[in-house]
Measured scan of single mutants.
Amino acid sequence: GLEHMADEEKLPPGWEKRMSRSSGRVYYFNHITNASQWERPSG
């Protein structure tokens, strides 16, 4: 619920959580730099 939404908002600017269609794993994508990574971004 609300706790999940608050957790999402802690991601650094530009980052969003996405799911890989090929593997079904969650990864993180930065739409500003077009960077993507499996680890949760910090800072």
Results as ranks from 00 to 15, higher is better:
Asp7Trp: 07
Glu16Lys: 04
Asn34Ile: 04
Gly24Met: 05
His4Ser: 11
Arg21His: 13
Gln37Lys: 03
Ser42Met: 10
Gly1Pro: 12
Ile32Thr: 07
Val26Arg: 04
Glu9Leu: 07
Tyr27Val: 02
Leu11Tyr: 03
Arg40Val: 07
Val26Asp: 03
Glu9Pro: 08
Asp7Asn: 11
Ile32Lys: 07
His31Asn: 12
Lys10Asn: 14
Arg25Ala: 05
Lys17Glu: 06
Leu11Met: 05
Ala35Gly: 05
Asn34Gly: 15
Trp15Asn: 00
Asn30Cys: 03
Pro13Leu: 08
Tyr28Trp: 05
Arg18Val: 06
Gly14Met: 03
Arg18Gly: 02
Asn30Met: 02
Glu8Tyr: 05
Gly1Arg: 13
Val26Pro: 07
Lys17Ala: 10
Glu39Gly: 08
Gly1His: 11
Glu3Leu: 09
Arg21Cys: 15
Glu39His: 11
Gly24Thr: 04
Ser22Trp: 09
Tyr27Ser: 02
Ala6Lys: 10
Ala6Ser: 13
Phe29Met: 02
Gly1Thr: 11
Pro41Ser: 01
Lys10Leu: 14
Phe29Asn: 00
Asp7Cys: 15
Pro12Ser: 02
Gln37Cys: 06
Ser22Cys: 15
Tyr27Asn: 00
Leu2Ala: 13
Ala6Trp: 10
Glu39Thr: 08
Ser23Val: 05
Phe29Trp: 08
Asn34His: 15
Gly14His: 08
Asn34Ser: 08
Gln37Gly: 01
Ser36Gln: 09
Glu9Ala: 08
Thr33Gly: 02
Arg40Tyr: 08
Leu11Ala: 01
Asn30Thr: 00
Leu11Glu: 14
Glu8Asp: 14
Asn34Leu: 13
Tyr27Gly: 00
Pro12Thr: 01
Arg21Asn: 12
Ala35Thr: 14
Ser36Val: 15
His4Asn: 11
Trp38Lys: 04
Glu9Asn: 08
Phe29Lys: 03
Pro13Asn: 08
Arg25Gly: 03
Phe29Tyr: 14
His31Met: 10
Glu8Thr: 09
His31Gln: 09
Lys10Thr: 13
Pro13Ser: 07
Tyr28Glu: 00
Glu8Asn: 10
Arg25Glu: 05
Asn30Ile: 03
Gly24Gln: 07
Ser36Asp: 02
Glu16Asn: 04
Lys10Glu: 14
Leu11Ile: 04
Ile32Gln: 08
Lys17Asn: 02
Glu39Ser: 06
Ser23Phe: 09
Ser36Leu: 14
Met5Glu: 13
Lys10Tyr: 11
Asn34Pro: 00
Ser36His: 10
Ser23Gly: 08
Met19Ala: 06
Ser22Gln: 10
Arg21Ile: 15
Val26Lys: 03
Val26Glu: 07
His4Gly: 12
Glu16Asp: 03
Lys10Asp: 14
Met19Cys: 15
Ala35Arg: 15
Glu9Ser: 08
Leu2Ser: 14
Leu2Asp: 14
Gly1Val: 13
Gly43Phe: 15
Pro12Glu: 02
His31Phe: 14
Val26Phe: 11
Trp38Pro: 04
Ser22Phe: 13
Asn34Trp: 08
Gly1Met: 12
Pro41Arg: 01
Ala35Pro: 01
Ala6Asn: 10
Ala6Ile: 11
Trp38Val: 05
Glu39Tyr: 08
Tyr28Ser: 00
Gly14Lys: 01
Glu39Asn: 08
Tyr27Phe: 11
Glu39Trp: 09
Gly1Ile: 13
Glu39Lys: 06
Leu11Phe: 02
Ser36Lys: 13
Ser23Asn: 11
Gly24Val: 04
Arg21Ser: 14
Met19Trp: 15
Lys10Cys: 15
Leu11His: 01
Glu39Pro: 04
Pro13Gln: 06
Pro13Arg: 07
His4Lys: 10
Lys17Asp: 01
Glu9Trp: 07
Met19Pro: 02
Ala35Ile: 15
Ser23Asp: 10
Gly1Asn: 13
Gly1Ser: 12
Lys17Thr: 06
Glu39Gln: 09
Leu11Val: 06
Pro41Phe: 02
Tyr27Pro: 00
His4Arg: 08
Leu11Asn: 01
Thr33Phe: 06
Met5Asp: 14
Tyr28Ile: 00
Glu8Ile: 09
Pro41Cys: 01
Glu3Tyr: 03
Ala35Lys: 15
Arg18Trp: 02
Gly43Tyr: 11
Arg40Glu: 04
Glu3Gln: 12
Trp38Met: 05
Ala6Gly: 09
Arg40Trp: 07
Arg25Gln: 06
His4Met: 13
Gln37Arg: 05
Arg18Lys: 08
Ser23Ala: 08
Arg40Ser: 06
Asn30His: 05
Gln37Met: 06
Asn34Val: 03
Pro12Trp: 02
Tyr27Trp: 05
Ile32Ser: 06
His31Arg: 14
Ser36Tyr: 14
Glu9Phe: 07
Trp15Tyr: 02
Glu9Gly: 08
Asn34Glu: 05
Arg40Asp: 04
Tyr27Gln: 01
Glu8Met: 07
Ser42Ala: 09
Val26Gln: 05
Phe29His: 06
Pro12Arg: 01
Val26Thr: 09
Leu11Arg: 01
Gly43Arg: 09
Lys17Leu: 09
Pro12Val: 01
Leu11Pro: 15
Trp15Ile: 00
Ile32Pro: 02
Met19Leu: 14
Arg40Gly: 01
Arg21Tyr: 10
Arg21Met: 15
Glu8Leu: 07
Leu2Arg: 11
Tyr28Phe: 07
Ile32Arg: 09
Trp38Glu: 05
Ser42Ile: 11
His31Leu: 14
Tyr28Arg: 00
Arg18Tyr: 05
Arg21Thr: 14
Gly14Trp: 05
Pro41Tyr: 01
Glu39Arg: 07
Trp38Arg: 05
Leu2Thr: 13
Tyr28Asp: 00
His31Val: 15
Tyr27Cys: 09
His31Glu: 06
Ala35Tyr: 09
Glu3Asp: 12
His4Pro: 14
Gly24Pro: 03
Phe29Glu: 01
Arg21Asp: 11
Gly43Glu: 13
Glu16Gln: 06
Glu16Ile: 09
Ile32Ala: 07
Glu8Ser: 10
Pro13Asp: 08
Leu2Pro: 12
Val26Ala: 07
Ser36Ile: 15
